[in-house]
């Protein structure tokens, strides 16, 4: 594989490079090979492509068996099927025994599931995995961040959940942009009227909102939170303290994901008004990704309005 386009191809390229270097990396698929754009991996490493059929619970538990024997399995499929259908296997048999399993959940958020409808739109996955002890959670925003997230966590001890997209998500970051595991990534530093935290596939909107607000006289510091757990609480608290108002932006329910993580940090370390942009705890419709995220309150205008409200609460 010479290059990648989209988050799923980025996953496959990163995995293939890891597999070239280390025979411990294998891939477990619950009939998700094509969805993962990973056919090339199966052709290149047929003995490391473990296809278990449409059976996510089995896929997750097979990973436990493989990992307990020294392998490092990647299990990859739609994020809701892995975090909900196979939730107990993930919690009790991957996380509890601290197995080196990499869980790659694609089609996260409304952006990922869009026209498929609620059965394929997953906006609870981060809340689920974040509440399980011992799981590292990465929320890359685009293809190059997926590639870097997989590489950055490849040798971590214990399970890692990486939320990936659908291939529709816009490319936001230049490939030369740094990606430091476990750290906040400051993207804009216009000022300290508020701090804007964003993760995942709405990153472009958060950046646009920060840019437009600067033109309109509201100067924010805007951060990409690509490691949701463990959250960089030191830097987060410092920004909350310095700016005195915060907004979170994510393609996820406002309960359980980035909004919760920042609000928990604020409550524990630095009480600060926090406005959360995301899905407002309802089941959405199917629809085209851009229109859908606009409709459900995640537009650039919604983000700007949330910043103004947060600032007004200082």
């Amino acid at each position: 594989m010479k290059d990648y386009k989209g988050t799923r191809e980025a996953f496959t390229m990163a995995l293939m490079e890891l597999a070239e270097q280390d025979p411990r990396y294998v891939m477990v698929c619950p009939d998700s090979l094509k969805a993962m754009r990973a056919t090339e991996f199966a052709e290149r490493f047929p003995e490391r492509y473990i296809e278990v059929g449409i059976a996510e619970q089995n896929a997750m538990a097979v990973c436990t068996g493989l990992a307990s024997c020294g392998l490092i399995p990647f299990v990859a499929s739609y994020c809701g099927f892995l975090t909900m259908r196979a939730c107990e296997q993930l919690r009790t048999f991957v996380a509890y025994p601290n197995m080196n399993v990499r869980i790659i959940g694609i089609n996260g958020g409304l952006y990922g599931g869009e026209r498929e409808g609620v059965t394929h739109q997953f906006f609870e996955d981060l809340g689920i995995v974040r509440s399980i002890p011992g799981i590292t959670v990465e929320t890359p925003a685009d293809e190059s961040q997926v590639y870097k997230a997989i590489k950055a966590t490849a040798l971590l001890e214990g399970p890692v959940y990486i939320r990936c997209g659908s291939g529709r998500e816009p490319v936001v970051f230049d490939r030369s942009e740094p990606y430091e595991f476990g750290k906040l990534h400051v993207v804009r530093e216009y000022g300290e009227d508020a701090v804007l935290f964003a993760s995942g596939f709405l990153m472009n909107r958060a950046i646009a909102a920060a840019d437009q607000l600067a033109q309109e006289g509201i100067k924010v510091t805007m951060c990409d939170v690509h490691t949701l757990k463990p959250l960089d609480t030191a830097h987060t608290s410092e920004l909350l303290s310095r700016c005195g108002a915060a907004v979170t932006v994510e393609d996820h329910n406002i309960i359980g994901g980035l909004g919760s993580a920042i609000a928990e940090t604020a409550a524990s370390y630095c009480p600060t008004p926090v406005e959360r942009v995301g899905l407002l705890d309802i089941f959405p419709s199917s629809g085209e990704a851009e229109a859908l995220t606009d409709y459900y309150g995640m537009s650039v205008e919604n983000i700007k309005a949330a910043v103004r409200k947060a600032v007004s609460r200082k």
Binding site: Q57, N58, V62, T64, G65, L66, C69, F93
Partner: peptide, 11 residues
């Protein structure tokens, strides 16, 4: 049994 299958595949 799934975990055992994983161990057997690993073997």
């Amino acid at each position: 049994l799934s975990i055992g299958a994983g161990m057997a595949i690993a073997a």
